[in-house]
């Protein structure tokens, strides 16, 4: 078997374990390439049956319209259930402080909405598209990652995960985060997208965009959440997104990649990691991801 076949078979196996072990699973869908791959894998795992889980999106209100349109169209085409919950609503209901600063991120706030939606539907398993190559705290996480009632990850209490036998037994109130594409790298994902002819939101490919060139050289999209001031350097460039997160904390990269093949050669050439190139939130501290995960983040 080719390595992509092996990664695919492993992911399908994990998805079916979720279906077999849990009463109320959910697939967390963001409109990004990793969760799009998950949906594609779920089709392979469960068709001609329906998905044994709904797609759940935590909408921060700062999402790219292209990703939202893609999300709605996909759910409609597949005739699968889509649940959307809004960070905006959580902020109002819980009287939370919205993101501050020049680029107000709602990354931390989405944990609240995520935990609420888990509680609302009593989800016992949430499937996500996180990969171990993204970040070194993720590199330590199990494929079945048990969270307590507060959604917290305790790296010291991880269950041993031996062979590919997955223990998803939990008590009521707890939930398991499941990462079927843990062992895929960014390049694997793109090679898979190419092989399977998976359609993606347009912002993954090069397009002309007006951006703020930040002091550390990142290209931040200008949008209604970012207040411009006179010192801002505004540039118009051909860019694409390597990851699709919030438009306030995800930066674009300069690119001339029109096709998946172009993107693959670009990634092979690039010397900067996916998160390093595009995420402002992980630059905060060395253990930023570990701390957010401990707090219930994906």
């Amino acid at each position: 078997m080719d390595y992509l076949d092996q990664l695919e078979a492993e992911a399908i196996y994990i998805l079916r374990e979720v279906a077999g072990q849990f009463d109320r699973p959910a697939l967390l869908f963001s409109g990004g390439k990793d969760s799009i791959c998950l949906v594609h894998l779920a089709l392979k795992a469960f068709r001609p049956g329906k998905f044994p889980f709904p797609l759940v999106h935590v909408d921060t209100g700062h999402n790219f319209q292209e990703a939202l349109d893609y999300r709605d169209l996909l759910a409609k085409q597949l005739d699968e259930k889509l649940i959307v919950r809004y960070v905006e609503d959580t902020i109002k209901a819980k009287n939370l402080q919205d993101g501050k600063g020049k680029f107000p991120s709602r990354n931390g706030l989405q944990t609240y909405t995520l935990l609420d939606v888990i509680e609302e539907f009593e989800f016992d398993a949430c499937i996500g598209g996180a990969r171990r190559d993204e970040e070194k705290a993720r590199a330590k996480e199990r494929i079945f990652s048990v969270r307590d009632e507060f959604g917290q990850w305790d790296p010291k209490k991880q269950r041993p995960e031996i062979w590919n036998i997955y223990n998803g037994k939990i008590d009521k109130g707890e939930n398991v985060r499941v990462f079927p594409i843990s062992n895929w790298t960014e390049l694997d994902v793109w090679n898979y997208i190419k092989r399977e002819n998976i359609v993606l939101p347009s912002i993954y490919f090069t397009h002309e965009r007006e951006c703020i060139l930040t002091e550390n050289g990142q290209l931040m999209n200008t949008n209604k959440f970012v207040e411009l001031d006179e010192n801002d350097v505004i540039v118009t460039k051909n860019v694409r997104y390597r990851t699709v997160g919030d438009m306030t904390c995800t930066s674009a990269v300069e690119s001339e990649a029109y096709t998946v093949d172009d993107i693959i050669s670009e990634i092979k050439e690039t010397k900067i990691s996916e998160r390093g190139a595009t995420r402002m939130d992980d630059r905060v501290s060395e253990a930023a991801m570990e701390d957010r995960k401990k707090g219930g983040y994906f």
Binding site: R132, D133, K136, A139, K140, S182, N183, T185, L187
Partner: peptide
């Protein structure tokens, strides 16, 4: 090293 970490190269 306390727990397993997974690393990838091609």
């Amino acid at each position: 090293t306390i727990d397993v970490a997974y690393k990838y190269f091609t």
